[in-house]
Amino acid sequence: MVTASRTSADHALAGASDGTRARQPTRTGLAAGPDGVRIAWEEFGTGSPTILLLPSTPIVHSRQWKAQIHFLSRRWRVIAFDGRGNGRSDRPTDPTAYHDDRIVEDIATVMDATGTERAVLVGLCVDGVWRAIRLAAEDPGRVLGIVAFSIGVPRLAPPMPHYATAGKTFEDELPTSDGWAKYNRHHWLRDYADFARFFFSEMTTEPHSTKAIDDAAAWAVDGSVDVMLAEHEAELPFDLEAVEARCRAVTCPMLLVHGTEDRCQSISRAHRLAEITGAPLVVVEGANHMIPGRHPVLANLLIRDFVRGLDPASRVEGFR
């Protein structure tokens, strides 16, 4: 009855994995920075300015921006990269590889490799916000603006109490692995996937978040506990005064976005950063830490309007 049947392999798209992305990258590459660690980047679309989506910690990788990439790349060139330690980037297990300076260098490395002189930086949490601020302060010519989600600027306010408590016993063998006791070296080594599920459940407490939690926990398992332990040992070589000085030195436009229920970064840090820089702060009622993943329409419209605002000429009729 069937006379000819082409196989699905005949139709496999070059470079497309299994139909799981709304948009495939136009270019990809591996860029080696000053310390030789290779960073995997992807480029989508065309149009100025370039929007650079920054990594958060190596607990996730660049798929954390899955709800932004296809949307922003309808109008602009978008570059995303896997932070060192997860995704397709190298995964050093030496704590020195996660020094603050190395993470800032990675941003510049990707910009150099992709021929990006200047970009709008979009980031979340410490690696996404603090490191964007550092680059903008130290090399202002490269940063057109910053959209900062879930303000991870250390020292501006005390860490969340559960981090402070768990941090004190991180190295200890604990009698329990309930709740934040999972934030512990021995539990990570025993059952890192369990920690990841717990962590992202804590970070995504909005109702109906199973997909967002499952996605993020899976990205964590893509990475490795050895990397997480190495990254955990990296210390911040800045005191409060030095942190505030860097924040004050930022001259580009900046938009701050923070949820009232954020369980990773205290909203006091967002208020303090707004105070120091004069940047507008959008407070999202009821939102926890993972705003771009859990509230993508809001996040996308905020980024879009911010980028449009940088250059009124970039307004386009009918761009949804």
Binding site: V37, R91, P92, A97
Partner: peptide, 9 residues
């Protein structure tokens, strides 16, 4: 890594 640092895969 290219720099010879040990890493996971």
């Amino acid at each position: 890594t290219a720099a010879g640092l040990p890493q996971t895969t």
